[in-house]
């Protein structure tokens, strides 16, 4: 049952931490999820050596997907160097001994919190999302028995009530994160708290897997699935683009983070996807605030 892995630092762990039986259970849930796009498959979430809210669902899905040949990238809000991303990457370096990378193009498995990489993904890649709340209907219907029935019977009017409330209150659909989608014309799904800017890229050549640890749910969007963001005829879905280019790489079509630069309140907007931004800069692209080629910035 257990695989012996040369090069794994501590032999107290099985490859990728979870025992093979648990991984098989998770893979079965993943396969079921792939077979029924957007459907939330219950699974027996395991205790992981990190607190809930740190992506235990995503970590278990990643553990069940990894092979020794994989190259893993982990991002948190688009960045590879946040505490969360670093600790998950280290975790798999230690327990699976897999190679890791910060480059989207080099990764075979990417675990993410809150973003889809800007760089287009390919059929050879798997994107694993960390999901806090998998149930899109919970906002208005807290009863689990009732939301399951609604999914089962395709009764999704309530999802539009939420969007109606948005427009009534704010004059437009103000939902900016976790914007609900319908997958393959059947299940309504919460794409996890990615910005709605990323929603169009949910239609992807890559396999997308969603893991919710505390809530014990796994769901999937298979490659090339149709993913439609819900809206009204007279208030069509708008992924909303930033009104300025990235201050560092000049990109005009990326999701930007606001960065405070100094005590005087100076700020700039830069790509939230740090790998994408750095790669563009390495290719010679420049934004309004980027350092000149040779001199150091002051």
């Amino acid at each position: 049952m257990t695989e012996e892995r040369p090069g794994v630092e501590t032999d107290a762990y099985n490859f990728a931490y979870l025992d093979e039986q648990t991984k098989r259970m998770i893979r079965r849930a993943i396969l079921k999820g792939v077979a029924i796009p957007g459907y939330q498959v219950p699974f027996a979430s395991r205790e992981m050596p990190m607190p809930y809210g740190w992506g235990t669902g995503g970590v278990q899905v990643t553990a069940a997907c990894l092979t020794p040949e994989d190259r893993l990238k982990v991002i948190d809000q688009g960045a590879d160097d946040t505490t969360n991303a670093v600790s998950i990457r280290k975790f798999f370096e230690r327990t699976a001994g897999v190679e890791t990378t910060e480059h989207t193009t080099e990764a075979t498995v990417i675990q993410t919190r809150h973003r889809i990489p800007e760089t287009p993904m390919t059929e050879d890649q798997i994107l694993v999302y960390q999901v806090p709340i998998p149930e899109p209907l919970r906002f208005l219907e807290p009863r689990e028995t009732e939301t399951r029935k609604m999914h089962g019977l395709e009764e999704y009017g309530l999802m539009h009530v939420k969007l109606y409330e948005d427009i009534a209150r704010h004059g437009e659909i103000a939902t900016a994160y976790a914007y609900p989608v319908k997958v393959e014309g059947r299940y309504v799904m919460d794409p996890s708290p990615i910005p709605k800017f990323d929603n169009p890229r949910l239609e992807s050549p890559a396999l997308q897997l969603f893991g919710a640890g505390r809530e014990q749910r796994i769901y999937a969007v298979p490659p090339y699935s149709k993913v439609v963001s819900l809206d009204f005829e007279d208030h069509p879905f708008d992924p909303s683009k930033a009104d300025h280019p990235c201050a560092l790489c000049g990109a005009e079509n990326t999701y930007l983070d606001e960065v405070i630069m100094d005590d005087a309140g100076g700020r700039m907007f830069v790509c939230s996807d740090t790998d994408y931004c750095a790669t563009r800069q390495a290719e010679g692209h420049r934004g309004a605030q980027s350092a000149p080629f040779t001199e150091a910035a002051e």
């Binding site: 009017g157 309530l158 009204f232 005829e233 007279d234 208030h235």
Partner: peptide, 14 residues
């Protein structure tokens, strides 16, 4: 009031 309309497929906010 709108919920029942949306439940039977109304998709025009106005």
């Amino acid at each position: 009031v709108g919920e029942r309309l949306m439940a039977v497929g109304a998709r025009h906010y106005g």
